[in-house]
Simulated scan of single mutants.
Amino acid sequence: MSAQKADIIAQLQKDILLLQGLRPACNSGVVDVGLGPVKNAFPGATFPTGAIHEFVSEAAEHAAASAGFISGLLGALMQNGSVCLWISTSGTIFPPALKAFGIEPDRVFFITLQREKDVLWAMEEALKCEGLAAVVGEVRELDFTASRRLQLAVEQSRATGFVLRHQPRRLHATACTSRWRITPLASQLEARMPGMGFPRWQVELLKVRNGRPGTWAMEWFAGKFRQVGEHTMVAPQQPVRKIV
């Protein structure tokens, strides 16, 4: 491929991202969330901030693993002293546990509501606030219209949204930038060390806009993510399927 054609393709890719609401951050605004090789799955090898990320879970332990993984991302996004909102109908997060991911619990505002429709409304309104680093919303169902409203909100504020969906009935197409599935892996102790090993997850990036889905084994170690094992599998786009 000639250099001229490569430049044209690169410019077209940038134009498509702009049309989809993904504006490139200036160098001073780029946040390295420490995902290691996972970041190469995203356009420009940069985790998209100012975007909506969808996490799906099928069992309680998967939901807990997703919450832990998201907390690791939040720790990086909140390094400048900003705060975030965590909105749900259950309030199952144990705030002191967030310290393991570098987050002071008093910088996370937990909001517990009665109905999921109220969670989505509160999340949309919160994502319009430029003073927030991120907003996490726990809902079961998310249709394209609701996800598009969330995406439009972050395009103005540049906050980052995380939608944690536990046991969704169906996985419809959404306007979210990415869709993840996080499942727990057995931890391993360091040689001759007592206690428990570091949290480990199987990280599946099921879809990513203009990126490359894949699967990685990751671990939370010394305040950051690191890959465990030697192999990284890049997977094709996952089909939309029904979760029973």
Rank of each mutant, 00 (worst) to 15 (best):
A186N: 06
P48N: 10
R241T: 13
H62L: 11
A186M: 10
A159V: 07
A59K: 12
P213M: 09
E219K: 01
H53K: 01
R192E: 07
E204R: 12
Q13Y: 00
L12F: 14
K242S: 01
T49R: 03
Q114L: 08
L77Y: 00
T46L: 01
E125F: 07
I70E: 02
F55Y: 14
P96Y: 08
V139F: 00
A159R: 08
K5S: 14
P213E: 06
T174H: 11
T232K: 01
H166P: 10
G161A: 11
R179V: 03
A76Q: 03
A235H: 07
H231R: 11
G75A: 02
A64R: 02
I70W: 02
M123P: 14
P24Q: 06
E138D: 12
V244Y: 10
E204A: 13
R241A: 15
H231T: 12
V83S: 13
L206K: 01
Q11Y: 14
W121Y: 09
V83W: 13
V244R: 08
G68P: 04
R192C: 05
A134D: 10
G211H: 03
T215S: 12
K117P: 07
V31N: 03
F109P: 02
V136Q: 09
E155G: 15
V31L: 04
L150F: 15
R226E: 10
